[in-house]
Design a protein around this nucleic acid. Structure first.
Length: 366
DNA sequence: AAAACGGGGCG
DNA sequence: CGCCCAGTTTT
């Protein structure tokens, strides 16, 4: 390669690079300013509020997360108040939103920032990324929105917009596909205004370049979109692999003593630190369940079995077959056992953050 | 029933 | 890195 073609290659690479940025950014950002939703976390640069909103919105639609954001800001206006809160109060506010480990990580990280960082949110990408509950997406979001740092976010919206613009057909949920997305994204990311750019591409994915029935005929980017020009909009992006759904069996014992009942705090796994009726996580016959519980709690075997109700609950990778065995206890037969609490039935879901399956049972009782 | 949602942790 | 985890709503 002679000197001339070397420099002309560099020149054409550099000019193409800036053309792409100018082309996409100058189309995308005006679109955003015209069409953006008015969301409270977009009106602040306070890293606490931005972090809070990003955690609440992980795998969650804006419409669903918004009311929770307002509740959290009201109850915990500063990061120190969140750090000093009881985990149970945080879980109670979180109730119904799902992915409860987000709430536990939120609390933990609030304490780290309040007491290890002296209340000052870390302001560089590496330190932000190292916090519990913060992965690549959330670190880039906080770094750009709160601190104006040039880190591009990749969420479900960005994956969809980029794969369509560049005609990427490799599965976006595989390393190969993600690598192509990143390379493509670097070509159009505008590091001079990362906050607006990140907001713009996500909003564009959420409102214009939607999963189904995207508004392509009236799209400001359609002349730059390979999926559109090759009529592949409805097959891009692609995904591979299905999560296997395993069946699990739960047997709950609902002990009624007037308006009181007995609950336990779940200690591991899904719904950790949420409350539930005493549980056996194993497939058993009705008589085996009754035998097990009567032995564990020292109840007479002649107890009155009030009812057995079955509830199916479907999670992403689990199908739970739950049976609730409701019995009536006589006064004087209090259960004294570690981890078992006697409470007012009405306090479930209010005073005690309660697992969804337990709440589902109570709701069906009414 | 399946897809989608402003993903993350762990070995 | 590859693999596993995981809740609710919408289609």
């Amino acid at each position: 390669m002679d000197k001339f073609s070397f420099f002309s290659n560099i020149l054409s690479f550099v000019s193409t690079f800036f053309e792409n940025i100018l082309k996409i950014a100058t189309l995308l950002i005006p679109w955003y300013q015209e069409n953006k939703r008015d969301l409270p976390w977009r009106a602040t640069r306070n890293p606490y509020y931005i972090w809070l909103s990003e955690i609440l919105l992980q795998q969650t639609r804006v419409a669903q997360g918004l009311p929770y954001y307002l509740k959290f800001v009201e109850h915990f206006p500063t990061i120190k108040k969140l750090a000093d809160a009881r985990e149970e109060d945080i879980l109670n506010l979180w109730q119904g939103l799902g992915y409860y480990s987000r709430a536990r990580n939120l609390h933990h990280t609030a304490q780290v920032i309040a007491y290890q960082y002296n209340g000052r949110f870390p302001s560089n990408y590496q330190d932000i990324r190292a916090l519990k509950g913060i992965g690549d997406y959330t670190a880039a979001a906080i770094a750009s929105f709160a601190f104006g740092l040039p880190h591009a976010v990749i969420d479900g919206n960005v994956n969809r917009v980029i794969s369509r613009l560049f005609g990427i057909e490799k599965p976006i949920n595989k390393p190969d596909g993600q690598a192509e997305i990143k390379i493509a994204l670097e070509q159009i990311f505008d590091p001079s205004r990362p906050d607006i750019w990140n907001q713009a591409i996500m909003e564009f994915g959420a409102l214009q370049c939607t999963p189904r029935n995207p508004n392509c005929t009236d799209c400001p980017l359609n002349t730059n979109c390979l999926a559109w020009s090759s009529k592949k909009v409805n097959i891009i992006p692609t995904k591979e692999g299905k999560t296997k759904v395993t069946q699990v069996y739960h047997s709950y014992l609902v002990m009624r003593l007037g308006s009181k009942t007995y609950i336990q705090k779940r200690e591991t796994g899904i719904w950790k630190n949420l409350y539930q009726f005493p549980l056996i996580e194993k497939q058993m016959s009705d008589s085996e369940v009754i035998n097990h519980f009567t032995e564990e709690f020292g109840i007479r075997k002649t107890i009155h079995l009030h009812s057995i109700r079955e509830i199916e609950h479907i999670l992403t990778h689990r199908k739970i077959f739950a049976k609730f065995y409701t019995i009536s206890l006589n006064t004087g037969s209090e259960i004294l056992k570690n981890n078992i609490f006697e409470i007012e039935l009405d306090d479930l879901g209010k005073v005690f953050p309660t697992s969804v399956l337990t709440l589902k049972y109570l709701k069906q009782q009414k």
